[in-house]
Nucleic acid binder design. Sequence first.
DNA 1: ACCGGAGCCTGTTAGC
DNA 2: TGCTAACAGGCTCCGG
Length: 272
Amino acid sequence: MPELPEVETVVRALRDPLVGRTFSEFESYWPNQIVVPDDVEQLRARITGRTVTAISRRAKYIVMTLDGGEETLIVHLKMTGHLAVVPTSKPVHKHVRNLFRLTDGDDLRFRDMRKFGRIYLVTDPDEILAKLGPEPLEDPFTAEVFRQRIAGRTRIIKPLLLDQTIVAGIGNIYADESLFFAKIRPDRHADTLTKAETDLLWAGIRSSLQNGIDREGASIDTYVKPDGTKGDMQNAVSVFRRTGNPCYDCGTPIERIVLAQRSTHFCPICQK
DNA sequence: ACCGGAGCCTGTTAGC
DNA sequence: TGCTAACAGGCTCCGG
């Protein structure tokens, strides 16, 4: 499941093959993934002839700026999305849902087994991105800012971490890993955390996400890098999907519970 | 403010 | 062995 580190890895891999390239055609095999504009024809008309001038990431969104500055193409991979630049001559994989043809013999292909991924073409990116909380790895996101953003919140901490308006980019894997780092049980209510615990959680968010980026993502379900190879973060998780296996710190079997309809993994001894 | 549930989806897996 | 049902989950919307 692509979260911030996985999306960052995808963006870095796409930058070289995509920036400077021009869209020449667009083919949609599953138009439901296109949220805006309303119809495929409009999307096709607005991107044809446009050149990608920049690609970046905001939370889990991939943001492609097109020349002229009037259009921004935004893609969210959700659960099983996979975005890659491949030669047009290559057979189209059965899970390719939307295909952007480029002028020089390549395609930007959006593969997505479960069709949860979303495509947006907007003139103002804020239409999609404005509601997001701060980027957890950027300088403005200090421990102080984190404390303020959860101040007064009574919700259970794990679902709170998954709320993209509080902090952007954390998903199920890195929420569990951050809480393990901070030795906080995922079912604690946010208003019971001490300042020291909140600071530790802030550090846990930063270090687990950075570790994920350094290892080029966690290939636990279907996630692979644009070139099809696996990331390495799945080999470095402390608790995620390790149910029943011994905690690396104390040997106690990792437990699995469900919080807000999400499977949640933690060490019942290390995490208080 | 917060919670729970439905919906979007399909490949994999658990259970009969 | 072969079938069905449950499960996985990021995000949005709805009702309470």
